[in-house]
Design a protein around this nucleic acid. Structure first.
Lengths: 173, 173
DNA sequence: TGCGTTATTGCAACTCATTGCAGATAGGCG
DNA sequence: CGCCTATCTGCAATGAGTTGCAATAACGCA
């Protein structure tokens, strides 16, 4: 959570949003501000603010980068051992609908989440060593542009993981 | 199973193989030839030829394109109601090690399989309508080439699914 | 403060996929 | 044909993630 890209890059394709108060809160002041921002947003939408949701949001606020659902459940359990996994899953879904987090899939199919705003990026994943890298910005721009122009297809980069073998693994055979 | 690309495109990256007898069998004559070819290959490797494996291979031989694991289990059960899912999964893994099938992941993380040889291709998947298309050959060539040149990364196209929104869904909002 | 409404949670069941272990069996050899 | 070896299967358990339903609780209003 170290950089704040153009907010449109975190928004649904085709939609241009003004900077969002709770996304700024996520970036600026960590857990208390994020909690307050999310709580307000929930109430605007007629949704509830619960202790379970607070706990998860606090965990997310102190999380950098990608995190597995198992890790999130475990960290919520540290705060409240009565945490139920299905509640965590549901809350994550809700937070994603709200635009607070975003999920993506590892190459083995498993889910991971990260907190927005984060500039949308794709990944390279090496099947030999398990290493994972961000796509370079110019590479992803080219892919996005090519598919936009060619097929009118709007790429969702957060779900792009290009799988193969990295240079080092290719050299060691 | 209508075209027979350069066999190297079905092989492990970095390895160049002569055309493989059982891959030709898969393409030429359907179930009996594929069964025989796989059986021979198994025996060469000290592995066993079992009724469960035969049933799965027969199902695969009559399958065109991608198929979910649930579908494969169901189809094996039609042949033998005593089919056990874990055996199907294990057999699919083994067949993939042998180069007979290949798996990939749907955008929701679930697995699908298809029978080789099939020219390796990536996919476009629209999250709005669920439509799925093959990447155009020139598009995938460009992606592959760009990452090869830029980071020395060898792309495994069968695991590339680019997620986003298709032209039609973008136009309908 | 109490009540009513309804969103949310806990629980249990489910699907998908993996894995350990003991019994079954494929298949080579004498 | 019988024996032996070791691969393979069936079974049960597990983890990841989803979902229906009844009970709980958030929260607005009087």
């Amino acid at each position: 959570m170290s950089s704040y890209p153009d907010p449109t890059s975190s928004a649904a394709a085709g939609s241009v949003l003004a900077p969002d108060p709770f996304q700024q809160a996520a970036g600026e002041a960590g857990s208390p501000a994020l909690c307050a921002a999310v709580r307000d947003r929930l109430r605007e939408g007629g949704l509830r603010w619960t202790p379970q949701r607070r706990a998860l949001i606090e965990v997310l606020a102190e999380t950098d980068g990608h995190v597995t659902t198992a890790e999130l459940v475990e960290r919520c359990r540290e705060r409240d051992p009565a945490t139920i996994p299905s509640t965590v899953y549901r809350t994550l879904d809700m937070l994603e609908d709200l635009g607070v987090v975003r999920h993506c899939h590892r190459p083995d199919g498993r889910e991971e989440y990260h907190v927005l705003p984060e500039h949308e990026h794709g990944h390279l994943y090496c099947r030999a060593c398990g290493g994972c890298w961000e796509l370079e910005r110019d590479e992803s721009d080219r892919i996005v542009g090519m598919l936009e122009r060619g097929q009118g297809f709007a790429v969702d980069l957060s779900h792009v993981t290009i799988v193969g073998r990295c240079r080092a693994c290719r050299e060691t055979g």
